[in-house]
Amino acid sequence: MADAIDPATRFAKTDFVIRKERIQAISKALFLIMVVIMIIPLLSIIAYLVYHAMPSLNWEFLIEAPKKGMSEGGIWPAFVGTLYLVVISLAIAAPIGVFAAIYLNEYAKENWFNRIIHLAVINLAGVPSIVHALFGLGAFVYAAQFGYSIISASLTLAIMTLPVIIASTREALASVPASFREACWNVGATRWQTIRAIVLPNSISGILTGIILQVSRAAGETAPIMFTGAVFYKAVARGELFPYYLNEQCMALSMHLYTISTQVPNVKESIPYATAVVLLCSVLVVNASAIALRVWLRNHKKW
């Protein structure tokens, strides 16, 4: 049987193989085209924004306050306001979310109650931000009597980001193999020692990614802060570092972008674009530092 075929033509392509390879090439090309289709709008959005923003893009624009009824000048108050909101909301949401996720994933028993919580969290993560905004208005502005303020807006943002942080943290924790935990328990480690020594170091990069992604979301959302604490205009000196008290309202980039592009007449054309670029770049910087941090943590697994 083996010597019936001339060795020189053994394993040669048959017609059917050629046909299969053609189909294979076509499908590969199809997927590649989809990648290109995905990339083109992304790049063109960025290019379009930067091109139109060019005249205003400079250091002055960032640290200058708006002038002439916001039709000229910079965006400093809005930039700082966004920083306030993001930092405070994450300072609230990240610890609560991560610790709650640790409890749910590591301590809680797998029963119907846990499953319902899980389901509720997943569903909350999908609730539109305007709904969170209304809740924030009712709960923090009126019921808790924080008024229209940074603290109300931050709490609203925290409520909005919390479910996503819980869900992504749980996912990161669940991706740590159960055998690691068993190895720990079998030398007599407590749950907390196991979490501290094995589970967290191996899931920290996933946890951080989940949190960082919420930075971009908190920075970009307009509705929740519009209802609870962001304001149209606030007089702030050029480059002032701590312009707001927590019980005051503040400006924010996303809100500012909305106002100057729809509400304010005769705005210099490049200013809305430049505002968008600043918002985009801040998010980019945050994400890039998150990636850097993850790489660093991965190289220093022991901590």
Partner: peptide, 11 residues
């Protein structure tokens, strides 16, 4: 079976 499997015409 007598054929070099790194030959370019091998499928």
């Amino acid at each position: 079976l007598g054929k070099n499997i790194y030959d370019p015409d091998v499928s």
